[in-house]
């Protein structure tokens, strides 16, 4: 297949990408996926899963050891200059000039991308209005949420075709997190492809499609609904007054596939469907009190853990 001449419809193509640091640390192994134009694609996984490495390779900041990657049809190694002019990139930690004001930062990034704030103001307008009252304030003096908004504005100011966001919501309070995702939704409507990474499993449901990633391997790629429905074991939420003993006891229950704490409950996945009464009786026999058992809806976390244990 000679894909250098083929018109590409995918915004991001990744094929068998591998990367290792030093001798032992395999950051990515044989990762492949595609992101369609205008898609909001989530890269979900814990720290050290390889999310940052992957995003940096796509941002042309790292070279892969093996495999291919294209952004907007450009090859990441050869066409890095083109990619750099046309993507917006927001690194994992706050990477703006703390001693420059909001306005100065934005003006700086607009200018180095050869554009002006005016030219693309329409794109950042929604976000920038929230920053406007603080435009003379130094970036270092903004709250976490505001910093993220400013960083997003700076990454957007040149109207990129693809936006690469590395853990934009890490360490940000829940309110700002929610607002940030609302902004991403609106950007998506403006035909910008967005690849966003996050360690928060609950953010998966806000993406069009997600890749679950762990130790450099992609565990699954699907729509959030698809990932959850792929969890095919019967799932119950159980609680009693003694959480710690409950977990131990449930793991010893013969029909148990797995038992993990989920907030106030323990999620008990079963090998086979059995009556909740049987579990009730089992727990009562173990002298548990305040027993409560109800069917549970699997979450992305259930699915993720299931995939992890299958590995």
């Amino acid at each position: 297949m000679n894909d250098t001449t083929m018109p590409t419809t995918q915004a991001i193509q990744v094929e068998s990408l591998s990367k290792r640091y030093g001798k032992n640390a395999q950051a990515l192994s044989q990762v492949s996926f595609e992101v369609g134009r205008g898609e909001l694609f989530g890269l979900i996984g814990p720290d050290g899963a390889g999310k940052t490495t992957l995003i940096r390779i796509l941002a042309t900041l790292l070279l892969a050891d093996e495999g291919q990657a294209r952004v907007n049809g450009w090859e990441v190694r050869r066409d890095y200059r083109k990619i750099r002019s046309h993507i917006g990139y927001m690194p994992g930690r706050f990477s703006l000039y703390q001693d420059l004001s909001v306005e100065e930062n934005l003006h700086f990034f607009a200018t180095i991308f050869g554009t002006t704030i005016k030219e693309n103001y329409e794109l950042i307008h929604d976000i920038y209005v929230q920053l406007e009252p603080f435009r003379k304030r130094k970036a270092g003096k903004l709250s976490g949420g505001m910093k993220q908004k400013l960083a997003l504005c700076c990454a957007l100011i040149h109207k990129p075709v693809v936006l690469l966001l590395d853990e934009p919501t890490t360490g940000v309070d829940p309110v700002s997190r929610q607002e940030f995702w609302e902004m991403l939704k609106r950007l998506k409507e403006k035909d910008i492809t967005i690849l966003v990474s996050t360690p928060y499993m609950d953010e998966a449901s806000l993406c069009d499609r997600v890749a679950l990633i762990q130790k450099g391997n992609i565990l699954s790629i699907d729509e959030p609904g698809g990932i959850v429905s792929a969890f095919d074991k019967p799932l119950l939420a159980v609680r009693t007054n003694d959480m710690y003993r409950l977990i131990q006891d449930l793991r010893e229950f013969e029909s148990a596939h797995s038992a993990f704490p989920f907030g106030e409950y323990v999620h008990l996945a079963l090998r086979n469907s059995i009556w909740p009464e049987a579990i009730h009786a089992y727990l009562a026999g173990k002298e548990h009190t305040g027993i409560e058992i109800k069917p549970a809806q699997a979450t992305i976390e259930d699915a993720f853990m299931e995939l992890m244990t299958q590995e």
């Binding site: 941002a59 200059r81 750099r84 990139y89 690194p91 990477s95 000039y97 990034f109 180095i112 050869g114």
Partner: peptide
């Protein structure tokens, strides 16, 4: 401070 990363990923 990480700004070098952003500068590198720009057309500069």
């Amino acid at each position: 401070i990480g700004t070098m990363e952003v500068l590198l990923a720009s057309p500069l």
